[in-house]
Design a protein around this nucleic acid. Sequence first.
RNA 1: CGGGGCGUAGCGUAGUGGCUAGCGCGCCUGCUUUGGGAGCAGGAGAUCGGGAGUUCGAAUCUCCCCGCCCCGACCA
Length: 587
Amino acid sequence: MLLRMSTYFLRTLRDDPADAVVPSDKLLTRGGYVRRIAPGIFSWLPLGYLTYRKIEEIIREEMNDAGFQEVHFPSLLPREPYEATNRWDEYGPNLFRLKDRREVDYLLGPTHEEMFTLMVKDLYSSYKDLPLIIYQIQTKFRDEARPRAGILRGREFSMKDGYSFDIDQNGLDISYQKHRDAYIKTFTRLGIDFVIVSAMSGAMGGSKSEEFLAPCEFGEDTYVKCQKCDYAANVEAVITSVPSEIDFTNIPQLHVEDTPDTPTIDSLVDISNQRADLKRIDRNWQAADTLKNVVLMLTHPDGKNEPLVIGIPGDREVDLKRLEAAVSPSVVRVFEEEDFPKYPALVKGYIGPQVLGLNSSSKIKYLVDPRVVNGTRWITGSNLKGKHVYDLVMGRDFQADGSIEAAEVKVGDVCPKCGQELEIARGIEIGHIFQLGKKYAQALDLKVLDENGKSQVVTMGSYGIGVSRAVAAVVEQNHDDKGIVWPKNVSPISVHLVAAGKEEEIYQTGEKIAQELADNNISVIFDDRKAVSPGVKFNDAELLGMPFIVVVGKKLVEGKVEVKDRKSGQREDIELKNLLSYLKKLV
RNA sequence: CGGGGCGUAGCGUAGUGGCUAGCGCGCCUGCUUUGGGAGCAGGAGAUCGGGAGUUCGAAUCUCCCCGCCCCGACCA
């Protein structure tokens, strides 16, 4: 491929667009790769579309290599299948809905589980046909409440979504593993640094789910990673390391104390350390010695409300994302002022666990953080205004209905696998593999006959790669202050050839080199603009980010050109006659 | 949806009641220049987001509307 800058539909910008915040958005816009059209909606210019297709093709090749078969569904979809799985409603405002001229409902596909399931149902009916893995690369539409970060989170975006169909869990495990392997190969080839983290399988009835995250400060996902072992998890899916139970025979009996004006954990800790009668002899009280009881209202899928109290150590906040993941498919809302009168057992500000639990008189469900194990002793609410209780011991003085992963994860928390400290980082979700189970097959009645002639519901998995997002993720991880630094594999073009100088010979030689490279399958973009000064050309070359920059200029009189490695910045003068073989080795 | 910021030419911006809305980049013409975003001269390009109002006079003040960005909520 040979592109000429003098005629290529490309305009680079000197300044960052005012609205852009993340590097990929700034650089892709400045480099003339993309243009924003509306919030979360982008156009690809020629060079951008070239890059996009390069990445898309790598993903396609890896999927095909793994034995997955490509299909293609429309984006414009009828309502009925989504009605059957209840997602017409469940997807809520995130679904782009529209009507045709006869007022019939349609939607723009946010994801295609239904369509894939129905297609398989349409054609297959025997266990002998399974396993089957099919995928597509398709534009998806989601009316996100807040698109952001340029291409990283759009409302219209491209996604590779694949689905596996198996007769049983064993088959699903194999299909899942195949995807895991294929994804590792794919992202490695794309030059993306990634980490595989455990994710929530959510309410889908699935048993396993992992995300591929590209570490990046602008990523939207927070995850933890063990400093020592291979444990890594999305923060929602982090499993708290449970301490062992403590013998409580020597812990003094509980005692209730007057603690006026202690609305916060801090004030409670302060007063406990200041007052002689409350002071601890061996050490000061800490926030972690208090048990904070947070009241919430759960709304179950059937619409019923149920209060829930969660007991967590006082040095932690409730992490809403973790909480929501833990209670899904129910949703939580804050406990409002009007709710309190309905539950007289709850004394606002002084809620304590003695009156809580399904077996207690209040019948209010009480769940505790996994760190609250038998034998732990706490300062907590006494259910009397202005009073707290001390030395309240779990297992001796109160019980819980179970534990819940709702407390925030902190740096230094210990790994549930090996006990080492965890680190916290952010990443871009570039892939997600997910054991769906039978939810969609069940809802859409996808069954096949097994070897005994019995009808079996098929077990499914779903697997996604954000294709357009991957373009941005590559830029996030591969750029410097001058511009993009494409990894060789994904670079839209291999060689950026700059003609620097005004002599006609420079341009003629450049043209010859460009032709020769193109003839030898080395793609080249030739900056043949005559009225543009060399400085502009060098800056553009660095902004656009092709891996090798070749300069034809003043060294031509010695029969040499300069080859610069965009990434390392190293330059080398190469004899013109050796250029082709030199570049062949590099690209 | 809550909080914050913003809307002036293709891009980046100046301009808090007063003359024809200014500057840089980019674009066009001519000359000149060609190894790190050149120079000179001339030029095109703006319903100042939209509407209503106040005023002798509005980009500037008031009200309403629209749009955009950021944080949060939300996000198989």
